[in-house]
């Protein structure tokens, strides 16, 4: 009897251990099979960093080549055409612009939310930025940039989470500083007009600060100009 009960206990221990081991094994294997999903974001983030770096290098190269093209075309016969090119570049936003203007600083709402209030209403949206830019253009701004990114005709503004995407994936983070060259009083007044853009943004508690400045620098657009679909009319 003594030995018999001892055997029973041993059998039980063995059974339980066996089951647990089996379960453990299955779970572990399941997890190792799924590990790529765990590492994917990290791998992508590294890839992204690399891609950004090489993008920046390419951009520098484009600028260099443009400058060399200008140099090479320094002959007297080409001077007239060169002048025309400079004028066109100015209009396309490919030259740095300096002059009096305004600086508009934007930040998300500092309002303390009531419980149950929709926090989405109190953050900066693309349309807010679009309206400010539009207002500045309507008030005669000659050149505009956000956080050092020049606005050209094809510039889009997208707010994703707390960041703004501009000029096809240039990511900007807050605070957003919009610099505009133009008549400082006209620009500032058009923004601060009663019932205007600043008024309506402040309703949502979004922090807007408009400052007139004597000298503001708007950098040149540095990306590529590639037309895949559009052709000049014959």
């Amino acid at each position: 009897m003594k030995t018999k009960s001892y055997y029973w206990v041993m059998l039980l221990v063995g059974l339980v251990m066996g089951i647990i081991l089996a379960v453990q094994f299955r779970v572990t294997r399941h997890i190792t099979q799924n590990t790529p999903a765990l590492d994917r974001p990290i791998a992508l983030a590294q890839q992204l960093d690399k891609a950004r770096e090489s993008r920046d290098r390419l951009q520098v190269r484009v600028d260099e080549l443009r400058a060399r093209l200008d140099e090479a075309a320094a002959g007297p016969e080409l001077a007239r055409m060169k002048e025309e090119l400079d004028r066109a570049r100015e209009k396309a936003g490919m030259t740095q612009v300096q002059g009096p203007g305004v600086e508009v600083t934007l930040n998300d709402s500092s309002k303390v939310l009531q419980p149950g209030a929709n926090p989405n209403l109190y953050v900066l949206h693309d349309e807010d930025v679009l309206r400010i830019l539009n207002e500045l253009k309507a008030a005669g701004a000659q050149a505009i940039s956000i956080n050092g990114q020049r606005l050209i005709s094809t510039t889009e503004v997208r707010c994703i989470g707390p960041t703004i995407l501009l000029n096809k994936n240039q990511r900007l983070s807050p605070p957003f500083v919009i610099s505009a060259v133009g008549h400082p009083d006209t620009l500032a007044n058009s923004l601060k007009m009663k019932g205007g853009v600043v008024d309506s943004l402040q309703f949502w508690g979004i922090q807007v600060d408009v400052k007139k400045v004597d000298e503001v620098t708007v950098p040149a657009y540095t990306g590529g100009l590639v037309f895949e679909y559009a052709r000049p009319e014959k």
């Binding site: 055409m81 570049r89 936003g93 100009l225 037309f227 679909y229 052709r231 000049p232």
Partner: peptide, 27 residues
């Protein structure tokens, strides 16, 4: 010289297109 003028003209056209100073067609 003639190639130079041609090359500059090409660049000029592209910049003018980007500035919106040229009528364009396309899909």
């Amino acid at each position: 010289k003639s190639e130079a003028i041609e090359a500059l003209r090409g660049e000029l056209n592209k910049v003018r297109m980007s500035a919106g100073l040229v009528t364009v067609t396309g899909p």
